[in-house]
Design a binder for these strands. Structure first.
Lengths: 251, 251
DNA sequence: TCAAAAGTGTTACGTGTACACCCATGA
DNA sequence: TCATGGGTGTACACGTAACACTTTTGA
């Protein structure tokens, strides 16, 4: 049983009259070549804090809930402003609201956290400010947990949970497409699964299963310029799964 | 694709300077004999609103986020106060925060919604105020959606999502136990599944699958006073599933 | 002609489902 | 002894995993 939020506490230290703030943050995942040029790896953008608490540490991009914006819209807006990203897939992750998570005794922050998937091309276009940088997700989590480079606030907990959710969801939902361009050969798609699940998949079985499931459809066109047999290109098929349990729509 | 929250809006009607409030509500499910004494049915407690907006309508139990309480603790506290319930299973459902969901132009309410499972005995003990009553879940949702008896705010949307989540989760997680007393024959457990999924299950296969999965263990004792072969009693086994993706702990 | 990746076919195995059958108790 | 639900055994369908094999391109 994972319990990143800690056990359910009833009452905490008596902080007199905390100010309540509502924030929206997002864990953005992108798939890029790994640090050692090998298989693709999950990366995420972080923002360096320039004031206390946790000044100097890295944190998830986010900001206060904006007036006149729904929660998801606020997440999109803040992401656009801080990282230039407009993610293809955006989904609510969890609401974090422990009394003492803000790191300040006079303020309580409740964060509605979203998670997002973007294509590698998109983050390349984005113009990052000086205080935004991308990091490999697994390494970031590891360095948070062993104390080498802890993230601000409870963002390490949030990152761990987001990774869990991504890895769980990819096994029953065709979200892998959100990492890829419009058209792609099935091998690209398989590499996405392999990167996220952290293990190799049998190419032939993968092919059959994906096609049987109907989440992709052939474009009829083939890739060119390969030094081997040119593969067929596929596109993501309209979602016809019966058990969708999402609330946010995605474009 | 279900989209109870509506499509992702960017900007809404320009309400000048809304006051922001953070609330915590809970969808509580209990399994009771159905309206026609037949198979068990899902019920939930609702609270009648005694002021505008939506005065007179039924709403989910909830209240403002309490100082010095974490989110789940606040949910428990409010539930205890309004319905006398102390649910066995409590889990965060979703955060609802559309700009116009409060029904008032000068106020914006973001609700962190939990869902809970209680045993029938527990709700019997609870002392309900005059404005609390229990309703069959499916009928309530139907009467909300056909306009016969609409719930307050967006609580119909929330109820629908909670039912979906319950029905999805029961297929891969042993939460059904939360509806039952400490010890129970497997037939009781099967009836829980049948009630929630809305279809009959093969008793022999159900038995084998549940036992193989290891979510229950035998007490060695048998039930007495039946007018047929006395069944073995089982209890819920310590959770050893590897892929738990919950954040709140449950007792 | 060779390397490399695309794509097809075949088989073994495990899991879920349907259903026949026996067991233990009270009436 | 019968009705009722508890509990076991078994055959079959189907999805998944393993892997041998053929196809098509550029170098």
């Amino acid at each position: 049983m994972t319990s990143p939020a800690g056990s359910q506490t009833t009452a905490r230290a008596p902080a007199p009259h905390q100010h309540l703030e509502l924030a929206v943050s997002t864990v953005v995942f992108s798939l890029r070549p790994g640090p050692a040029q090998d298989r693709p790896t999950l990366w995420l953008p972080l923002v360096r804090r320039i004031r206390d608490p946790f000044c100097g540490r890295w944190a998830l991009p986010g900001g206060p809930l904006e007036d006149h914006h729904d929660l998801a819209a606020s997440a999109r807006e803040t992401l656009k402003a801080t990282t230039g990203l407009e993610p293809r897939h955006l989904e609510q992750l969890y609401a974090f609201g422990d009394v003492d998570r803000s790191g300040q005794t006079d303020q309580r922050v409740v964060s509605i956290v979203y998670w997002a998937l973007v294509r590698p091309e998109e983050d390349a276009e984005a113009d990052h400010g000086d205080n935004v940088a991308w990091f490999p997700a697994d390494e970031t989590l590891r360095r948070h947990e062993d104390g080498t480079a802890p993230l601000a606030f409870d963002h390490g907990v949030i990152l761990r949970y987001a990774l869990q959710r991504l890895r769980a969801k990819i096994t029953y939902s065709p979200i892998a497409h959100a990492f890829l361009p419009e058209e792609f050969p099935l091998t690209r798609l398989r590499e996405v699964y392999e990167a996220i699940l952290g293990r190799d998949l049998d190419p032939s079985n993968f092919r059959r299963q994906v096609l049987a499931q109907g989440s992709v459809e052939s474009t009829g066109r083939r890739m060119t310029g390969t030094n081997h047999r040119p593969p067929l290109l596929y596109r993501s098929a309209p979602n016809r799964s019966r058990y969708t349990l999402t609330i946010e729509e995605n474009p």
